[in-house]
Design a binder for these strands. Structure first.
Lengths: 208, 208, 208, 208
DNA sequence: CATGAATGAGTTTTCATTCAT
DNA sequence: TATGAATGAAAACTCATTCAT
């Protein structure tokens, strides 16, 4: 007890300023990679912290909750995706090109990386039980839908909504199957498959 | 000695025998409904047992593992689905009709009941982390694919595999979106959407 | 409910009379072999029942308790041992021969069978925590001691008690080591070792 | 930048660091005393944690397993014993003295404390069912044997191995009987008994 | 005589979270 | 800013035991 308050001579590292964004970022990435490794949302904070190379306590310091961290990771993945879609759209000139650009961005290589595919799938499942997550996902879903509709209307007219819904469902379906890693026919890549569908619809609309 | 094996006429209270199949069935159903309620595979054995109206111990008595129970539930859902597909196929005469029948069965009302949709989605996610589950799902996936291919070949020729893959992905995608409960456009039902796609492909094949 | 009380036509096997001793015996033997298999007293009633080829319920029918069964098994092993010692003593003529006979019986082949060695050791450990078992063991211990003392007195006089205690400890020690299965020097069998010790003591007594 | 690594003079409340070895030690001791109290290896982690004055969770924090804790406790007891033997040997000059020293150390008061005796016995029994434990014990057994042989050879020649085995078995036997708490003849202490045996063998060797 | 159904208490283990430093 | 200590609640799983038939 007597020793409890003492004067020590210590080495002190100047507190590292501005660590917050760095730590948060690395924890979010650790979360995604942990989800991929375990293949489910049942990841422990300990595992995440270890992957990020920080102590368990610190993970809790920067995120209020495990859920908070999960949601942040989800938001991160979705915003990365949105960024790619925005870039792709900007570089496209016509509605037809924009449709292709959106599809390509949705299935782009870094979107389809195993880690990201795992994360999407897990988040989809997670959304079923978490209203927060569900809301987040539906934002993305709706944005995709309205983006597609906007560019489909001049191409397929009244069927725009149906075609957009089909494209959306197909993208999700391809993710699911990719995540499952089964029936991946080598001769088929998702982009050709989806774009072929769009072409078919456009031709049909033209003929009618 | 002579009396040792005789036929007697006795009063007998219905013995409480043969409970095993009953209990197993009700536990499996409880599992599915619990998954739906919680929206994820993180269901406790306690919850399942409670839903089945039995003690926690009994659930462990009839299933070796939680995983055992999970897998049994998964198998149950898949076999129910297969049954429906088989029935639908039997009643169809032409390849074209069989395709429609498979699609209709896949999206039938009792397949698309909230409980079952939840379960499928959760199992898909679960499969990522569980090799057993993955194997199980891929059996179903492959069977669907080969069923479709078989009937598509006379209709779309060399594109059968691509079209079958698309249909498969679309079904999964529709499940996912249904499960998420978002962007459910009232005017669109999955069947029309999918069958429309098939029609388009057939027409295209005819023209070429 | 209406079916609950019905008249059935059943095959009925005349109740097997006198099964009790048979069942009890086979359950006791199953207990010993289960203990040997698991290597500890942590045997489940289920395992024992299975080994005895009867239902779990029946094991509880014939033995009030798990402890009851354990104690019965212990008593069984000890009485088998005592029987052998009694036989051996009867056939010996002189005190010296009786000592040897007791030792030989204690280390006889069927005493030293792996199953029995396991059981003894487990029971020794079990006795630490169970007053009943402790009492049982000490009966055997004391009987051995007094048997030995009685025959040692004419041979080693006042050191009889010490020599008897040493013999007793040595027997137990040999069991322990046998059970552990380590340091079993092939050239040494327990009997020669023990008898050699006795001979030494007798010679020493003679000289003094 | 220049200030980044500096020596500061700060007030500091004794950080609660380095608890690990303390906790581990106290948990190990709690394990031993719990084993003694219950008289068997069937000790619950809860009981151990309570005796150590920590939460159940903490016990699992510092030890991976219950088995891990058990084995650590076993290793602790054995290393304490080895330490004593080493010390005793160092202080002895002749082979004869070393033999006596080993025996004395093996039966020393703090080796023969009720707690330690219980633990040894329980571990012996436990070793039957746990290959890890068995390996550990046999290390100790073999070391004792070779220690004794080394010093017995000049005293009893070719019979060294036999005498060493006898001493080993006798030590174990005395532990067992001590643990059982029965037939503890007041006039006999284990040391005199064992040393007497050694003396007898040496004399016999001298005469022959 | 014999069984299988059923339970409840108890055990290990995991984990998010909090806290003092 | 960062850590390790510590907890408590909850999870899966086990098992002796009871009971109706």
């Amino acid at each position: 007890m007597a020793v409890q308050n003492t004067v020590f001579l210590v080495h002190w590292r100047m507190p590292k300023l501005g660590m917050e964004p760095i730590r948060r970022r690395s924890l979010v990435e650790a979360t995604i990679s942990a989800i991929h490794a375990r293949g489910s949302a049942d990841v422990t904070m300990r595992e995440i912290a270890a992957r990020a190379g920080v102590s368990l306590g610190l993970a809790h310091h920067y995120f209020e909750n495990k859920n908070d961290l999960m949601m942040t990771a989800m938001r991160f993945i979705m915003s990365e995706y949105s960024k790619q879609v925005r870039v792709a759209i900007t570089m496209a000139a016509t509605p037809r090109e924009r449709i292709s650009a959106i599809i390509r961005a949705s299935l782009a290589h870094d979107q389809f990386s195993p880690e990201v595919v795992s994360a999407w799938l897990v988040f989809y499942a997670h959304a079923q039980g978490s209203p927060d997550a569900r809301r987040l996902l539906s934002v993305y879903t709706r944005r995709l839908h309205s983006n597609l509709c906007h560019d489909l209307r001049p191409l397929v007219g009244g069927r725009a909504s149906e075609v957009a819904a089909t494209i959306g469902a197909l993208i999700d379906g391809l993710y699911v199957r990719e995540g499952l890693g089964t029936v991946r026919l080598p001769e088929l890549d998702g982009y050709r498959l989806l774009d072929g569908y769009v072409e078919l619809q456009i031709e049909a609309a033209r003929r009618s």
